[in-house]
């Protein structure tokens, strides 16, 4: 059998290549520690981290922390999407709404969600709520911007056709404007979820007493660097999985058109 080189190197070999990347990373980590004789409290080795992971997995701490973080991200993210996408659609279509709301959003957007922590604690006390609120903030502003730009980029022809066939009001939004802006919204969801995941870890280091962020801070306080790195690894893995999950949206038949446009 004769397969083109591009197929083997670019297709079948791709996952193998990414595994190779991870293997090199591990080798570098392991080799550098051995070579420079780094103590565990500066940087634990792969085997120390693996032991810590096993320990935390057995005690259930790992699972509990991951669930706590994911729970907050999910809530904050969904709430943000549920509010920002409709708002963005309306802002994209109705000029005066955008003229009023947009300056405020542009003003609030560059304020890091972490700067809201004191206020979040005052308003919502201790627990999931302040963390959910911070995630909401981190996802809300960028999602509005993405949705507005998605609506602005809708091809004129689609709007003319909609007008010609008498689509108005909610029908117009559901059948034309939302789906036409969907590709850009999906890009927004992907980027925003990544940001939300970044923020939750930081938020949990300060605002709450559970979750992966807290796990890392707690481990540091007890000088368990192996646990710190183990927590970091888990955060990376979950971030990767979340990104892959949200990318599945791109494959929906009514989103896929944007990548297949002739």
């Amino acid at each position: 059998m004769c397969l083109p080189a591009g197929f083997i190197w670019g297709g079948v070999m791709r996952p193998v290549k990414s595994l190779l990347g991870f293997a090199l990373f591990l080798a570098l980590w392991y080799g550098a520690r051995k070579l420079l004789d780094v103590p565990v409290y500066m940087l634990p080795g792969p085997s120390d981290v693996a032991r810590a992971l096993k320990e935390m997995a057995e005690s259930g701490q790992l699972f509990e922390s991951a669930v706590a973080s994911l729970y907050r991200v999910t809530w904050g993210f969904y709430l943000a999407v549920a509010v920002s996408v409709p708002l963005g659609l309306v802002m994209g279509r109705i000029r005066w709404v955008s003229d009023i709301v947009n300056p405020v959003i542009q003003f609030l957007r560059p304020i890091s969600p972490l700067a809201w922590i004191p206020i979040a604690l005052m308003w919502f006390g201790i627990g999931d709520k302040p963390a959910v609120f911070l995630i909401f903030l981190s996802a809300f502003f960028p999602m509005v911007v993405f949705t507005v730009s998605g609506v602005a980029g809708i091809r004129e022809t689609y709007l003319r056709v909609a007008d010609n066939f008498g689509l108005r009001g909610l029908d117009l939004y559901m059948k034309v404007i939302l789906p036409a802006a969907m590709p850009e919204i999906v890009v927004g969801l992907r980027i925003t979820l990544g940001t939300a995941w970044l923020v939750i870890v930081a938020a949990e280091m300060i605002a709450v007493k559970s979750g992966l962020g807290y796990l890392i801070i707690d481990a540091r306080n007890s000088l368990r660097m192996d646990k710190v790195v183990a927590g970091m690894l888990i955060i990376g893995v979950i971030g990767l999985v979340l990104d892959h999950l949200i990318r599945l949206l791109e494959r929906l038949p009514w989103v896929e058109w944007s990548t297949r446009r002739q």
Partner: peptide, 19 residues
């Protein structure tokens, strides 16, 4: 005013690609 009894077929692709 435009009437719903007058239908246009435009030069560009006017089908909604998401449907």
């Amino acid at each position: 005013a435009p009437s719903s009894r007058h239908v246009f077929v435009f030069q560009e692709d006017g089908l909604f690609p998401w449907l």
